[in-house]
């Protein structure tokens, strides 16, 4: 049986900008047991007066990356205006800083290559983060499981991991990445330009078929609309796993 999950002091060993409001942080832990794609960590910040606040952030890195000596994970965090933790991470934290982390957490919203596919991933905004861990794991494990990512962003410059997604989609492993840009589209954009709906899900799902395992992560409204639409399209509810992070807009 695994050791109980405990708080431990993580050290920030890397900071990287993903978009104007999204940044990735590499956290090195003294005792990291490894993780599975889709899991998250809790971060706890404590002020000198004892006030403390906790938040959960999905792990973005593949388990294979964490298995290297030292035990580290990468999280990707969107800066939420007035967000107590995300604003601190964005505005204050630099490499060498330390704060408390516990994890990995979660066994429900998890995909491993051994589970097989086909795999349909549906993301809204920073909901792409745990799905990126799954795609990085898929690549690191050499999995050829047919997979499609449907990813809703407000505009082209808000797409997180865009260069890496382009590379993964072009590596011949059977991954397709489909973007929809809901608010602004670059000149010449020929892709989807509306919120995720049943017609869009039907088109993206078609090459995978009704046996697809589905993981949906994003704002609550997007997640519930997509999950309900996929069930209407004939997918068993047990094949559709969701992670809502609250009813903010995409």
């Amino acid at each position: 049986m695994a050791a109980p999950i405990q708080w431990q002091l993580a050290t920030v060993t890397g900071v990287r900008d993903e978009t104007a409001s999204v940044r990735s942080f590499t956290l090195s832990m003294p005792a990291w047991p490894g993780h599975r794609a889709g899991q998250h960590v809790d971060i706890r910040l404590t002020a000198e007066d004892g006030y403390s606040v906790e938040r959960s952030y999905s792990i973005a890195s593949a388990p294979e990356a964490a298995a290297q000596p030292g035990g580290s994970v990468e999280i990707t965090v969107e800066r939420i205006p007035d967000g107590e933790v995300s604003a601190f991470l964005h505005d204050v934290v630099v490499p060498g800083d330390r704060f408390e982390v516990r994890g990995p957490i979660g066994g429900y919203f998890v995909w491993e290559a051994a589970l097989g596919g086909p795999l349909l991933l549906v993301a809204g905004g920073s909901g792409v983060v745990p799905l990126m861990a799954m795609l990085r794991h898929r690549a690191a494990a050499g999995s050829g499981v047919p997979a499609r990512l449907l990813y809703s962003s407000r505009g082209g410059d808000e797409i997180i991991y865009r260069p890496e997604l382009d590379e993964l989609a072009a590596d011949g492993s059977g991954l397709g990445v489909v973007h929809t840009l809901t608010r602004s589209q670059p000149p010449g954009w020929t892709g989807y330009a509306r919120r995720i709906d049943e017609a869009m899900l039907s088109e993206v799902l078609r090459p995978l078929g009704a046996s697809a395992r589905v993981f949906i992560c994003g704002p609550t409204a997007l997640v519930e609309n997509a999950a309900n639409a996929l069930v209407r399209l004939g997918l068993p509810a047990a094949q559709v796993r969701t992670e809502r992070f609250g009813p903010t807009g995409t």
């Binding site: 967000g83 920073s126 909901g127």
Partner: peptide, 10 residues
């Protein structure tokens, strides 16, 4: 997951 957004939601 990014649950600062939960705290800011209406």
């Amino acid at each position: 997951m990014d649950d600062d957004s939960v705290m800011d939601s209406t």
